[in-house]
Amino acid sequence: MELTGEYRIAAPRQQVWEALNDAEVLQACIPGCQELEKTSDTEMLAKVTLKIGPVKATFGGEVELVNIDAPKSYTIQGEGKGGIAGFAKGSADVVLAEDGDDTILTYNASAEVGGKLAQLGNRLIQSTARKLAAAFFDNFHERLNQSTPEDA
């Protein structure tokens, strides 16, 4: 499943980039994120609670930043295990472009779920993932606390 989106953020690119690499910021922005602990410059351990359809589960897993081209782009990828609920995997290519004083953030994400999540929640996954992605970037954008999104 593929998801894409674009946001205009009223902050300079460097500032946006730093925020995107700040575990604290990420934890605050990732919906349902209970813990996010940095284990290296590019690796984190996360605990996220999600509800998809009738299945609610807490996922523990690793988040990793790869393909880093500071301050222009990276790929954030993660894989979480939710016990009997199954697993979720995802990655997003995030690109930051300068536009005057603003920054244009575009993302291209893909996600995959398995186990009970897929069996029972399948019909709702697309919409849930869309909502989660929107929530993350909304939160992120709000946190940088300027203008409104152009395209959500």
Binding site: E112, A118, N122
Partner: peptide, 14 residues
């Protein structure tokens, strides 16, 4: 089943 072998018709909902 989806391409990853996940069963998509796993209840009387589907």
């Amino acid at each position: 089943y989806d391409d990853n072998g996940q069963l998509l018709t796993g209840s009387y909902m589907d």
